[in-house]
Design a protein around this nucleic acid. Structure first.
Lengths: 213, 213, 213, 213
DNA sequence: GATGAATGAGTATTCATTCAT
DNA sequence: CATGAATGAATACTCATTCAT
């Protein structure tokens, strides 16, 4: 009988927001952003279309919120590396973590790649939180203020240092690019592989570590 | 003034068909399939909407035709390898050819990847001419009747043979997967890289060859 | 701490009702009835949407209440004239009072005119308390039971009497119409004029009085 | 069998455009802009909703087109006065013409007034072709480049000249304002009067001319 | 063959209103 | 009394597709 406290309201909002985002992510990833209708999302989330708009200003805003959330989570995942230095041992750990991350957030990555593939959409959407060009191009000196760019820098530095160790025959720039490209390849392979193939993944990760450590 | 022969008609038809497909490909790739309207394509191709439907049954049919055509071209490109055997020298040639192919048909690949990323769409569209799962999964024993599958087989065989050469420490299955994944990573990197970065591509290709030859 | 008396409750209710109506009037007038949302009103009145419906059955009912209240106030303003007779001196006073009234309730008049301009809406809304056609048409013999109609009658009578004084060249019906029309013109000019122009209003009022006295 | 010529297409477009605008004007005026739905307009115009958007970019664009067209027609109506001088005889003619104009385009005026009454909407819509403030405020020296402003100037000049004729007791500014206000009053009275009352209009016009000539 | 007007099913979005708490 | 989450009917707008000419 007594009215809901503002804390209760807060909780309801948070829960429902998450529910909507999770549902939407799933469908955006599977059917594509355009092909997924708000009606569809609402139905699968068990709410009315109208309510969606109580939580998100628009379909695009919903997409942005999803990406923003996941990017934040991913970056948090790498927070331990923020000392800006990657030792050989840490490098191995780093690569393995990428593997875990890909498996754990498969649906999100699927969506993210999809979006990155549309040149028109890319800038409009991602520049703000990923740092334009940091993930998709192989450019090496990215703007240092973006979290994603920081990770990039850490990797680059690792290969530069390795270059010092390896002598003049070693090209750190090319090696960085090759590593990044391999990671991307691993990523899309991993994202779209059926679950039954996962078992063997370990071997591939080991080989990648072996190659670039 | 004299009435055109039916052969001339045929040629005009073929030209216009190509024009439409080229225009559509460009826009599908840049703005995405859904975001591209028939009106837009028709306008940029310099024809009327109605005529579009004279050449293609539907928007989907147009997309299918585009993919079909390009897949055919790509496969023709590898026709020399149809003897089913890839020598070490041929392997190097094979990898370089992939690089060329990616650069030459960037727009198409951009579109293809986009489509492959949508799990729902993938099966519906591609199973027919690429062979389900052949490009996107790393599965190794594909159906042998598909042209894409044949290329796959050639590659697999190459690594099996290399395995025999390398001794028991060498895992051909893992190595094949690693190679495919590297190629994919190279592909998406190459497709979405700006033109200014192309210059350095050669080094990467060389490194890949070195790694897997 | 002691429980509020029912009288206090009543007062609170009345105050809140007034607050809602004032807020709504402001927004209805400025942005238009349709463009103003309940959410907007509630937010600006500092209450919840739900509470709004505790005080008013519907958006339309709110509008009706606003108009009703203002019409009542306006008519009260003219209560002194209810003796049904307008002397020459009283006429001057009457016209000046119209000027004051327009300035004091600008926002309401703005809303009222807006509503009166929609033929479809007019009858539906206003017939009940203003008397159909009394304000917007120049018809001269209105239904005598409506307060607005009574004012109309007083004015008409004034001009009839003036006609007796002025002789056969004078047409009281036309003169009444001209007067009403002038008042209307003055009204919309006054309502929509910027505040800086108000200063000169006095001259206009004087000229109107001069013309019709 | 042969395809339509571009001239035929032109004609079809022109006709349908007019049909849509006429239908929409009618409904906008009667029910108000917001309350009139596109579906409603389309149904009454005997076309599909979709076609509406083939001719007008949006509901708002439709409204703008309607106003633009009518304003143009109205201004053309006064084109003869463009010599910038209004003699006494011409003044009489001018006033009568206003009367005719109001009767002939009643529906449009009804719509225009409605829009002018919403302060929020006014500037957004009308500034461009009417000249901001020229019709609704009584300011006297309007920007001289707007057609509506030119008419305004002609009127103002008329009263200034009359002031010279009338001597120091005559205030041309006040008189201009009074005239404009009377015209506005006449306008709204005329627009919203039923047809049966039109007959008597002549007398009023005569009185207005008498008063201001 | 060629055109673009016309259709209509579908899509995102809005908003008055209800109701559990 | 008070809240704001939830609903759903309505609305503007889009676009692949058809078809008369």
């Amino acid at each position: 009988m007594s009215p809901r406290t503002s804390k209760q309201f807060q909780e309801i909002r948070e829960e429902k927001r998450t529910l909507i985002m999770d549902t939407a992510l799933e469908h955006f990833a599977r059917e594509g952003y355009h092909a997924t209708t708000i009606t569809h999302i609402a139905k699968h989330a068990g709410i009315s279309k109208g309510l969606m708009y109580n939580y998100f200003e628009s379909k695009e805003a919903l997409l942005k919120a999803i990406i923003e959330r996941s990017v934040k989570e991913v970056l948090n995942y790498f927070d331990t590396d923020r000392d800006g230095y990657l030792s050989e041992q840490e490098f191995e750990f780093f690569v393995r973590r990428i593997g875990v991350l890909l498996r754990e957030k498969r649906v999100f990555w699927s969506l993210l790649f999809q979006i990155l593939m549309q040149s028109e959409v890319r800038e409009h959407f991602l520049s703000s939180f990923v740092g334009a060009g940091s993930l998709e191009s192989s450019g090496i000196n990215p703007a240092p203020d973006m979290p994603a760019a920081q990770i990039m820098k850490v990797v680059t530095d690792y290969f530069v240092r390795k270059g010092e160790r390896m002598g003049p025959g070693y090209d750190p720039v090319a090696e960085t690019k090759l590593f990044l490209l391999t990671v991307k390849g691993y990523a899309i392979t991993s994202i779209y592989a059926g679950d039954e193939e996962e078992a063997e993944d370990e071997k591939i990760i080991n080989r990648i570590i072996e190659m670039f450590k």
